[in-house]
Design a protein around this nucleic acid. Sequence first.
DNA 1: TCTCCATTCTTAAACGTTTAAGTAAAAAAC
DNA 2: GTTTTTTACTTAAACGTTTAAGAATGGAGA
Lengths: 334, 334
Amino acid sequence: MVSLKDIADKCSVSIATVSKALNDHDDIGPDTKKNIREIAEKLGYFPNSSARALKTKRTNNIGVLFVDEGRSGLTHDYFARVLDSFKRVTEVSGYDITFINATSQKMTYLEHAHFRGVDGVVIACVDFDDRDVIDLINSDLPVVTIDHVFDNRISVVSDNIGGMHDLIKYVHSLGHERIGYIYGDDTAVTRNRVASYYNTLKELGITADDSLLCASAYRNPKLAAKYTEQLLAQRNRPTCILYPDDYSAIGGLNAIEKAGLSVPNDISVAGYDGLYVSQIIHPKLTTYQQNSEEIGRIAAKSLIRLIRDPKSTLIDKILVPGKVLEGASVRDIK
Amino acid sequence: MVSLKDIADKCSVSIATVSKALNDHDDIGPDTKKNIREIAEKLGYFPNSSARALKTKRTNNIGVLFVDEGRSGLTHDYFARVLDSFKRVTEVSGYDITFINATSQKMTYLEHAHFRGVDGVVIACVDFDDRDVIDLINSDLPVVTIDHVFDNRISVVSDNIGGMHDLIKYVHSLGHERIGYIYGDDTAVTRNRVASYYNTLKELGITADDSLLCASAYRNPKLAAKYTEQLLAQRNRPTCILYPDDYSAIGGLNAIEKAGLSVPNDISVAGYDGLYVSQIIHPKLTTYQQNSEEIGRIAAKSLIRLIRDPKSTLIDKILVPGKVLEGASVRDIK
DNA sequence: TCTCCATTCTTAAACGTTTAAGTAAAAAAC
DNA sequence: GTTTTTTACTTAAACGTTTAAGAATGGAGA
């Protein structure tokens, strides 16, 4: 590997001069600068990030902690989409990402982050009560959290309250009043959505009927199907069922079909997430699409700004709205 | 951050002694060792990976280059699954992963890999003819390629030839002889699959009818639907259509339904990939499931062995078979 | 008693950078 | 023409580690 020394030798200048020339310091003459840069280019020089990190204490690496309910990691659609857009933004700014994990060498998350010397961390997590997660959040590192709010930390959250609100209002606008809701695992996200369900119904002047709610799980079509059957079996069954995610909604679709009913003719269905697949199946799913790209993008930009300019970056709580995708799974029954 | 120096001061020994004690060298007395380790633990010491990397030339970082047809990155189901299992294996061995990308600071892939000093690289790529990719593959770095074979490099490949073979034989065993095939973008993978299509038909004594083949694209249900319509419009239409992936198959399902036909009663359909979603939709898709977990796992283990013990690691081409998932989308027409 | 060796530690250099501080020469100021 | 300032460089230390080589100590062997 070609180092500063090689260039210095070739140009008959000191290593410091080369370093400063390449970093465009202004105490290097224009001719020298030009010459050094040409030679560097010719020799195929690239800095050694470890050496640079050691000296500057900045690695240009961002730690990523993503843990979902099912430990599905990168195969979790929502997280994958958030992370993908996050990564695209950080990359153009010269940051690489490093996954923070606790499995390696029995380090805690924070230890791992320190070990790798990441300049900042983004955290999207199912369990923000985890001691290790809290330690990381309360560390001296720049932190941005996703889908969870902490005091004195920047957070980017998908608007779950607004999402449920919009979705229910949309469904209601098509005449639905008995709206079932099969919801996901007990997390902050879920609690917000359920609360929003109650509040929106109240706002619409509808008395919530608890027999229309079922605690299910995320991304579990089987379970969703089971609860769908239960809802269908009720004497006064809902005209529309909401699901915690699109996969669950597909499970619901299957259960309904199995019961000899048709969506949306006999009963309506709405998902949540707006996954790619929800828009290519038949009937096309009516769902609430979280703006995962925007969430990832904002998280990345906020974190980078926080890293580069901690003083002037204000601690925002950024709410990212999504939008109702009008599919064909909710019928107008007015 | 606590460094070796802090421990050395506290223990009244030299820095070298601390380093050697923690790395379990055998020229340090047992008592000293014990004491140093206790203090290190108490102080919460963790090594600085940059400093270590600078000295040892090993970063315990593995470069990952994943580029798919649509630049979908982490949202590509197959790659995400491969990568996820890859990552799980590398993590327990103490390796983190770094995404190799060319966007950052106009570096080539190889330059980026050198910049970060990765110990090895895994490459899964759509375009193995790309100059930058070739440079990376021919570099001095330990390399494992996925789904593409290179001379003198370890490769792990999904058995596309066997996959198509098994899938077609299965379909044929249910009585299908006119088998349509809508295939993906022109890549090595596709060429293998198409070749296998021809060979398997020949093996079964069926004369291939080129009017049953359409060049489509991967993960493009719209396009797949269009070609499906074309196939359906033929006077002597196929009894079964194969698709390049499950998403495309879903597009096919929709086109067939739109044409007033039913799967599998009027026509059969088979996908490829075995995505989660293919098994929860209705009708459950008959598809060939690539063993992406196994591919990622083997790639990781091979690469780590190659990094740690280059001499004794033999340059394998590992073929990873998948399996036919019998869904309900291919009917027995015997 | 002297030599030799093993054990256990220290010294010091090195990895490739960055950067504060120093210096020499040229330019500007008077 | 001397002093001051500016320009353009160099020196040297530092970041936190690893490791080859050296050194001090004590015990064994003769």
